[in-house]
Simulated assay, not measured.
Amino acid sequence: MSKSKNLADELFPEPDLYDSEEVLDIPPNQRKLHTESYDYSISTIYEYLKSEHIYIPRYQRSYVWDRSQASKLIESLVIQCPIPILYLEQSYDSRFSVIDGNQRLTSIKLFLNDEFSLKGLTAYPELDGLFWSDLDPRIQRHIKNRTLRCIAILPDTHPQIKFDVFERLNTGSVKLNSQELRHGIYHGPLIDKVEKLAKSAKWKEVTRIKADKRMRRSELVLRYLAMANDLESYFKPLTGFLNQFAEKYQFASSETLEKFEDDFTQAVEKIHTLYGDLSFRPFNHEFKAQNAINTALLDAQMIAVHRLERPLHSFSQREREKLWKATADLFDERDFSMTIGAGTSSRSSVLGRIEKFSVFLNEQLG
């Protein structure tokens, strides 16, 4: 190990997230947002983007600006029109991920890379049709000397406070959902594992979520992992519970993540064997199910099969249909149907439906 790496480990240690407090118990003095402001020249920003010292995280929306929008930004730099503040998140290795400003930064990088020509300018129409390399060197220097204000959220900010701030800065035309935000805030080995599991063929089959543009399958994987491994610490709201789990296991060991993967894979195999296309959907005695997933039922079924010890390799179609009939009877029971209907995120409802379905499955398959 080099002396440089030893020094870097001392100066920029990775956080120990395994002893973190519950989100709802964050002390008041830790609820503050820690930030630092930087005024970077366009020249510096361009170099940082090329070296990925500043980078666009995977959870961010793809680049959607058209050439006219991007050209207006470049023209604003020329006429020295104020540009909105860029918001970044600084990681423990001192790199910056972009929270708000993806379209602006990508436009600057593309233009300086000579990847589009200017179009639709109003203040300087003389520059229409010109690429970066076509501009007079004096105009190029003028643009590269312009500075943009950047506000960076520092790594010692509590993760749940970051989540709240990310939501407040979520200004896109299609706002990021909770799981997309988690992929940015808690990016690390756990999120990578969740992404991998969300793409498994059997998971796609039982959830019937094929085109997953909003990370829905990923959130359901994380939901299962959190309840399978941390159910006793469950609290409402569910979003806070999932955030706490993602923070706690953000940098989990490879051994822990392999166990998560094995448990998840076995649970999906079992639920597929038992219910197939009926998985996670209430159905009637004719075995007609609703199309949409009931996520409360998903909790109950996935944790119940996770706890199930019986191997299911020899499970027959006759046994399966007998189970389906009993399950349809269970859906008719008011006490159970209420736990997968209204108010499904309360602690009593979550623990109640999981326990009820676990007992039911053991009775049917015991």
Rank of each mutant, 00 (worst) to 15 (best):
S2C: 08
S4K: 10
A8D: 12
D9W: 00
L11N: 14
L11D: 11
P15T: 01
D16G: 08
D16H: 13
V23H: 08
Q30H: 15
K32P: 03
L33N: 07
H34A: 05
Y38C: 00
D39T: 06
S41R: 06
S43Y: 11
K50N: 10
K50I: 03
H53V: 07
V64T: 04
I79R: 02
I79P: 01
Q80V: 03
I83N: 02
I83L: 02
P84V: 05
I85E: 15
L86I: 14
Y87D: 02
L88W: 05
E89C: 09
Q90S: 14
V98N: 09
D100I: 09
Q103I: 01
R104C: 04
K109E: 06
F111L: 01
D114H: 10
E115K: 12
A123Q: 13
L127T: 05
L127P: 06
G129A: 08
D134A: 12
I139G: 09
N145C: 03
C150T: 09
I151Q: 08
I151Y: 04
I151F: 03
A152S: 14
A152Y: 05
P155E: 00
D156W: 00
T157C: 04
F163Y: 10
R168H: 14
N170R: 07
V174Q: 04
K175C: 03
L176Q: 01
N177G: 05
S178T: 08
G184S: 05
I185W: 07
Y186Q: 07
D192W: 07
A198H: 11
E205C: 04
R208I: 10
R208Q: 14
D212T: 11
L220T: 15
L222E: 13
L222V: 14
M227I: 10
N229G: 10
D230G: 12
L231K: 13
F235G: 10
P237F: 00
P237D: 01
T239H: 02
F241A: 04
L242P: 07
Q244D: 11
Q244C: 05
K248S: 10
Y249P: 13
Q250C: 14
A252C: 07
T256D: 13
T256M: 03
T256Q: 12
E258W: 07
K259M: 01
F260L: 08
T265I: 12
T265L: 09
Q266H: 08
V268K: 03
I271Y: 05
T273D: 01
N284R: 09
N284D: 15
F287R: 04
F287Q: 07
A292D: 14
N294V: 12
A300F: 14
A300N: 15
P311R: 00
L312Y: 02
S314I: 05
R318P: 05
W324N: 04
W324G: 02
A328S: 11
A328W: 05
I340R: 13
G343T: 11
V350M: 06
E355L: 09
V359F: 15
L361V: 10
Q364M: 07
L365K: 02
